Simulated scan of single mutants.
Amino acid sequence: MTTITTAFADAVHDSQTCFRRLLTAMAEPGTRVQLDRAHAFGALSAGAVQVLLTLADHHTRLWLSPSLSADQVVLDNLRFHVGAPLVNEPAQADFAVLSRTDLHACETVLPALPAGTEEYPDQGATLVVETDSLDDGVAAVLSGPGIPGQRSVCLGSLPPALVRWLSERDPRSPLGVDLIFVCERELIATPRSTRVEV
């Protein structure tokens, strides 16, 4: 029998703290923030857990990459603590999580994710990418709204397809996918409006 683990110790206060930090990450792309209010759920990192605890709910369709969807501890805890309906295809998702183990699948996942429509650009998905470092690996220069000039970041060991997709997307379009790169308890965001030069 799977053990349900503790989520936020103080649901209201901890979720508000995480929400403020996530707002900072999205409003100031490339700014590193730490989420330190909850632990991992099985193979799902503590940072990714806290993103979902804060932003997802029973109205939020959630897609998990194969290694996560095969982890019963992950499934049981997300169902219990978040209640987000799990979907089988990334094209159905509001939120998607791509684990480090499954990064090779990005080539099929990225083009499938909803980018919103002209009438409802806010319906573009948010993709949480678990990476191995925010200190090393792919070096990128970010620019755009929320960034004074430019901001240099490292995104860890990413497959070439993901790096190419990041550098080729059009930040002028209101349509697209927002990305959150998570390493353990730290994260940075690259919203759809952020230009990424690698």
Rank of each mutant, 00 (worst) to 15 (best):
P111E: 02
G116I: 01
S67Y: 09
V74C: 13
G146Y: 04
T108E: 08
L86G: 08
P148I: 01
R185I: 15
V141P: 03
D94P: 03
F95T: 00
A140R: 05
S99C: 08
S133H: 06
L110Y: 08
L166F: 10
V87R: 10
Q92M: 08
L142Q: 03
D132M: 00
G124F: 03
R172L: 15
V129F: 01
L158V: 02
G124S: 04
T54D: 06
F181K: 04
S167I: 12
R169L: 07
G146A: 07
G116T: 04
E118Q: 10
D122L: 13
A139F: 11
D136P: 12
E89G: 04
W165H: 11
F80T: 15
L166I: 02
A112L: 02
G176S: 01
C183Q: 14
D178H: 00
A70D: 14
P160L: 08
A139K: 13
A115Q: 14
P114F: 07
S133I: 03
R100I: 13
S173T: 13
T126C: 03
T108R: 07
S143E: 09
S99N: 08
P160D: 10
T108C: 05
N77F: 10
C154M: 14
E119G: 15
P90D: 03
H59L: 09
P160W: 00
D102F: 05
V87P: 04
L98S: 04
L166E: 03
V163N: 05
Q150V: 11
A70F: 11
A161T: 15
V182M: 06
N77Q: 09
A112F: 07
W165G: 04
L113V: 05
G144E: 08
T108N: 09
A93L: 07
V128T: 09
G83Y: 11
H81W: 12
C106L: 09
G156K: 07
R61Y: 10
W165D: 11
H59P: 00
V141C: 11
F95D: 00
E118H: 04
A84C: 08
D178C: 06
R185Y: 13
P121N: 04
G144R: 10
R185V: 14
P159L: 07
P121W: 02
C154R: 14
A56P: 06
A93S: 12
L68N: 05
A84M: 09
A112S: 11
P85I: 14
E184C: 11
V177M: 01
S69Y: 11
G156L: 07
C106P: 02
A96P: 01
L55Q: 03
